[in-house]
Design a binder for these strands. Structure first.
Ligand code: SF4
Ligand code: SF4
Lengths: 133, 133
DNA sequence: TCTATTAGGGACTTCACAGGTCTATAATAG
DNA sequence: CTATTATAGACCTGTGAAGTCCCTAATAGA
């Protein structure tokens, strides 16, 4: 029961991009170095974020990744779901109806967690903590 | 990011034991059949619950597993921690001090979830839902 | 138009661990 | 003593995370 390394990398990258907010795209090379991870692997992760519509990529010389217009609304949960998927923590193979007490408890606990992650926007975090690159 | 099958089995077993609350211990054979899992495997899981002090085991003829005295206070979180361990969802290898904003957010989200799981006692669940074996 | 630079994608490897099986041992009721 | 029960250790297997390698596509700048 852990978040994957990929989620770790995605969160850090988004934090960096949000704190930087340049018009100029930032290359995966540079992003990978900061996190001591291989560029090829990080690029696979960032492609997921692109497909989720959070960032955009520009190929070619001076290309890289850049936030999209709605960047101020991106939450932790958005990023986590983009990488981990949005399946439930608890998947029993059976379905004993909506009355199942075990599922009800675990899923409502999960919802509590997601609620906080959904309300925490990356942009607010940067503003509150005055993060400078 | 999922709870393991083992946690699933542990929760179901505890639900069953709590709903039954007999003085007579219940054998792993019977518990395993209800969940369509091998007795040997389930016994490994139940041994963890024994070591965590939630249930006790009686060897020999007519032996099995039985709740301990404090059974009314056992929470979902107790069971989950006994099986999954209590490590954090998010473990970055570095430690950039207590000010790290990413950790702060994720860990407080996790705490929200654990709070609910800690307050939900198995015995209350059985009482509220009127579960009968 | 050519070339260097960038992202994207597919195929592949490696490793850890969940999920289980098998077998032997220890305890105990009858 | 014996049948029945839990405990423990060694072992197996499949899956998925984490990462590498290499080829392709796009594009800015010379
Ligand atoms: S009781 Fe609930 S959690 Fe258990 S198998 Fe049925 S539906 Fe799933
Ligand atoms: S910024 Fe926080 S989460 Fe990231 S490596 Fe540092 S301590 Fe860990």
């Amino acid at each position: 029961m852990k978040y994957s390394k990929a989620t770790d990398y995605a969160l850090h990258t988004m934090l960096f991009l949000t704190a930087a907010t340049p018009q100029k795209p930032i290359g995966v090379q540079q992003l990978a170095e900061r996190q001591s991870v291989s560029p090829t692997y990080l690029s696979k992760i960032l492609t997921k974020l692109v497909k989720a519509g959070m960032i955009e990529s520009i190929t070619g010389v001076n290309g890289g990744y850049r936030l999209k217009r709605n960047w101020e609304d991106i939450s932790f949960l958005d990023i986590i779901h983009a990488i981990e998927g949005s399946a439930s923590l608890f998947d029993c193979s059976f379905d004993h109806g909506p009355g199942c007490p075990i599922q009800k408890v675990v899923l409502s606990a999960e919802e509590k967690m997601e609620e906080l992650l959904r309300n925490q926007k990356m942009s607010d975090l940067v503003r509150e903590h005055n993060i400078v690159i």
